[in-house]
Design a protein around this nucleic acid. Structure first.
Lengths: 208, 208
DNA sequence: AACAAAAAATGAACAATGTTCATTCGTTTG
DNA sequence: CAAACGAATGAACATTGTTCATTTTTTGTT
């Protein structure tokens, strides 16, 4: 009685088709152009059909959210090979910032929009983003363990590092850097990571 | 021939009335409840009338944007009395973060939404936000001048400081701190400012 | 193969909301 | 007072997420 199984498979395929269409629109036209009608049109189904596979638009966005985190995760994972934790942290920061600047809409969905986060109840659903986060946590911890940073609670440093790069990317992508001369924007975003990590490194040198 | 003048005055009063209504709705119900129809209802005019005073909704938001910057500016200005620039920077940071956490919708409009920024062409319009920004610039500059920080370009530090607190507030308000244990959120947001400023201060001590 | 039950798909319709515009109303001016 | 002008109106339009009664397709049974 493989009917139920096939049905389940087809359902899954359809969900995937919907998500693929959504991603495509997302990449071509950006966030707000991801409309139920457009998705339906793209996969050649009627509007209402989408709702047989997703409860609402937010659920679709949540799925995209996960896919994008997977992409970031795969960019960051190879960096774990870098032996020196301070170098590693720098590269993680660079990669993160590049990802944010090159995929502004994806970044929005991952780190700015509230909608996808409100669907997250337990940590299982949150696993992929969590993996990404753990890369950062481990690296900061390694920096502390190897004496590069000093910290009472390593989470303080993790949060500070995360908030800083997040702030940089967000200010840039959301066009809130008008107070800085336009020709310096790229430089600022690219170099303040160095500035911060240097600050951390110097902090380490002094107490000994 | 005072008719034209009276007309102009009435027009300005009406604009203000619309903005007041918008602010009121904004504070009571938040960002997305600021709807043209609601504003019209509140001031007891018809929907279309709003468009005789503002080109579109974004123009209203831009005006709110300015008003909120004024509010922040007025909270920050008295801090310029603080003599020690490092203390001053700390207090500015605290005040900024409090403002962001206590007025999340206003903060959104000021620092996250793109719409208001796209109306800004020249620096005159941008003056109030600019004043707020200059408080930060002067303070960081004073920290450098008095030897607390070292920096090739003070704008690097300004940007880093700004991006960091902005990142903290944004992560918090937008509920993107699920990777940190919930009971630590407040602590993280409140204490990483200290962490950062300590990092900066330590950086100063070491080279001498 | 025929037909009933179940599942899937449809698309019209609804609600919300920004925006426009032909029309109405009131004020000003000659 | 009447013409002209500006202000106000609110119906109507466009867009978009969502729902639901109806239709079409698939499945299970005889």
């Amino acid at each position: 009685m493989g009917v139920a199984e096939r049905r389940a498979r087809e359902k899954e395929e359809m969900r995937q088709q919907i998500l693929d269409a959504a991603v495509e629109i997302f990449k071509e036209k950006g966030f707000e152009k991801v409309q139920i009608r457009k998705i339906a049109e793209k996969i050649e189904y009627s509007t209402g059909t989408i709702y047989l596979y997703f409860k609402n638009k937010d659920e679709i966005f949540y799925a995209l959210h996960e896919a994008f985190f997977m992409k970031l995760y795969q960019q960051l994972l190879p960096l774990m090979e870098i032996g020196n934790p301070l170098d590693r942290l720098l590269q993680i920061g660079r990669t993160y910032i590049n990802f944010g600047l090159e995929n502004p809409d994806a970044y929005d969905l991952m780190f700015i929009e509230k909608a996808p986060m409100e669907l997250i109840e337990n940590e299982d659903q949150w696993s992929c983003a969590m993996g990404t986060f753990e890369i950062l946590v481990h690296t900061v911890q390694a920096c502390i363990d190897e004496g590069y940073f000093q910290a009472r609670d390593h989470m303080d440093l993790v949060f500070l590092a995360f908030a800083s790069v997040h702030g940089m990317v967000t200010l840039h992508n959301r066009r809130h850097m008008k107070m800085f001369p336009p020709e310096t924007h790229k430089h600022l975003v690219n170099n303040s990571l160095n500035t911060m990590i240097n600050m951390m490194r110097n902090q380490h040198k002094s107490p000994d």
